[in-house]
């Protein structure tokens, strides 16, 4: 009798689970869709603001086109993937007159005030193909000049495009913020940035 129950009655009772399954999929069939329908809809900016895209520079509050960066190379040393290239600015080349003046001053035994190299980097190249988005550069930046961008819509069609000049990007962003109507749409710009 037990075998009969196990092999005949029980499977018939268990068939109810099949109907329950149909009921669930049927219920969800009638419910509204939950996917974001990309070209027509976009992800809400709240979610986007926490998205960690590629690394970007932060401009000075008063001069948004110049980064806070002081070319200390902490990011370059600590980057595990070696994806950042920072070139320090050189001191402006003295003109012939200045050079002559300094020479004369030195010969006279005076202390010469040569202009120092600006702290801002001359070049800040970021290779996205190598980056693992670990954020080590951001934490170790003493000037707090780096952050993750929210640039979710960025596409590149070649490897060369994945190498971003972050200084140029910052300038483009600054120009866009100051004159949004006239600013030419920069290559890496996206809806996300316009809000920023």
């Amino acid at each position: 009798m037990n075998t009969f129950r196990k092999h005949v009655i029980q499977p018939i009772i268990d068939c109810w689970s099949l109907i329950v399954g149909l009921k669930i999929t049927g219920k969800y069939f009638c419910k509204p869709l939950i996917t974001v329908h990309y070209p027509r809809e976009v992800i809400d900016s709240e979610n986007l603001s926490t998205y960690g895209g590629h690394v970007e520079l932060i401009g000075k509050p008063k001069d948004p086109a110049t980064p806070k960066c002081i070319s200390c190379m902490m990011c370059v040393t600590n980057c595990p993937s070696g994806c950042l290239t920072v070139v320090k600015s050189k001191a402006p080349k003295p003109t012939a007159d200045q050079e002559a003046a300094w020479k004369a001053a030195e010969e006279a035994g005076e202390k010469v005030e040569k202009p120092k190299a600006p702290k801002n980097p001359a070049k800040f190249i970021y290779d996205y193909t190598k980056c693992s988005l670990c954020g080590t550069c951001i934490e170790n930046c003493p000037a707090k000049s780096l952050r993750f961008s929210n640039n979710i819509y960025w596409v590149a069609t070649s490897r060369a495009e994945m190498k971003i000049d972050l200084l140029a990007r910052l300038k483009g962003q600054a120009a866009e913020v100051s004159a949004p109507a006239h600013a030419p749409k920069s290559e890496a710009s996206a809806p996300a940035e316009k809000e920023a």
């Binding site: 600590n78 980057c79 595990p80 993937s81 693992s132 988005l133 670990c134 080590t136």
Partner: peptide, 12 residues
Amino acid sequence: QTWGGFIPNMGR
């Protein structure tokens, strides 16, 4: 890698 630089590998 450096000690700290190995952490991203752990995510992968």
